[in-house]
Each structure stands twice: as structure tokens, then as C-alpha cells.
């Protein structure tokens, strides 16, 4: 996983739609539109507590469970979508 995550918006449109909804809710930013390269540096409220809230909210939204090493590698929204997609692929 890296900051230069590939643009997977076309391959995972539903995940991106739902993830954007989660971001807007968690960070209380109705106009927020995150993309593959969005990182904590782009969102003021994306601090340590905000990140935990984000992870918990993503787990609830997608019905998945992450583990510590996985979330430690996430650096961008693109990374998050990749991880979600891999989790959903395993459970479907």
C-alpha cells in the first residue's frame, strides 16, 4: 500500500460511493469528495481519533473486520478501497 495507490474508481464505483458517504459523515463535511490520493494531510480532522472513527465506521458500513497490521499500512483513500475490495472478495 502506498500514497500512489492506483486509481480504482472505475473498478470499484460502489465502494467509492459508500466510502465517500462514510468520510462525509465521520468528518462532518457534506461537500467532501475523496479520491485515490486523498490522505490525512488533506483533511484537518483526519487525526488519530478521527482515523479510529473512520476505521470503525468503515467496518460497520461494509460489514468487514480489519486487523491492526492492515490499518497500519493504510496511507490513502485508495489504499482503503483496495483493502475493502479484498475483504469483500473474500466474504462474497
Amino acid at each position: 500500500m502506498s500514497i500512489e495507490a492506483k486509481d480504482n474508481r472505475a473498478a470499484e464505483p460502489q465502494i467509492w460511493t459508500r466510502l465517500n458517504r462514510v468520510f462525509r459523515e465521520v468528518f462532518d463535511a457534506p461537500g467532501l469528495d475523496v479520491g485515490p490520493d486523498t490522505t490525512a494531510a488533506d483533511i484537518d480532522e483526519w487525526d488519530s481519533v478521527g482515523y479510529i472513527t473512520l476505521i470503525v465506521s468503515i467496518e460497520r458500513e461494509f460489514g468487514i473486520e480489519m486487523i491492526g497490521p492492515e490499518i497500519g499500512e493504510l496511507q490513502s483513500a485508495g489504499d482503503i478501497v483496495e483493502l475493502i475490495a479484498s475483504k469483500l472478495a473474500v466474504t462474497s
Partner: peptide, 12 residues
């Protein structure tokens, strides 16, 4: 308890 996240050791 509505949610439990082992990765973050957090509950909601």
C-alpha cells in the same frame, strides 16, 4: 455496544 473493532481496540 453497537460495534466492536479489534483493529482499533474500540467499541461504539
Amino acid at each position: 455496544i453497537e460495534a466492536k473493532s479489534p483493529a482499533t481496540h474500540t467499541v461504539v
